[in-house]
Design a protein around this nucleic acid. Sequence first.
DNA 1: TTGGTGACGCGGC
DNA 2: CGCCGCGCCACCA
Length: 119
Amino acid sequence: MSSPIEPEFQKIYDVVRAIPRGSVLSYGDVAKIAGSTARTVGWAMGNVDGLDVPWQRVVGADGYLRIGKRSPELKEKQHRLLLEEGVEFLENGYVDMAKQRDAGAPPPVPQTLSLDLDE
DNA sequence: TTGGTGACGCGGC
DNA sequence: CGCCGCGCCACCA
């Protein structure tokens, strides 16, 4: 509604959509895969508007929900959504990243995406 | 055009 | 282990 989705952001959204339910990726991870930067991914997540993008599955590299600077409610919403998806949290409110990798969790990025950013 | 800001990340202290 | 600063890229005034 605001701005036309550039193909580059499209890639970001594509990667986020590929995140399996109950799993999460960090902004940096998404950025690396989409060939962008963490900041840009963050900006993209803030512009999902009505797109079909599971923005809640993108968290900080340390597992912290880096939202709430100006939208504490949004952070709570993300927390709730992730809980419903089966994502485990720690006492401090951080996502249990260790569990994420250790739970024998499936690769965050399905091969269906075939990231061809390899030269 | 320049400068400041931000849903980030990481190295230094 | 926490705080600070720089780098990054896109957006807005």
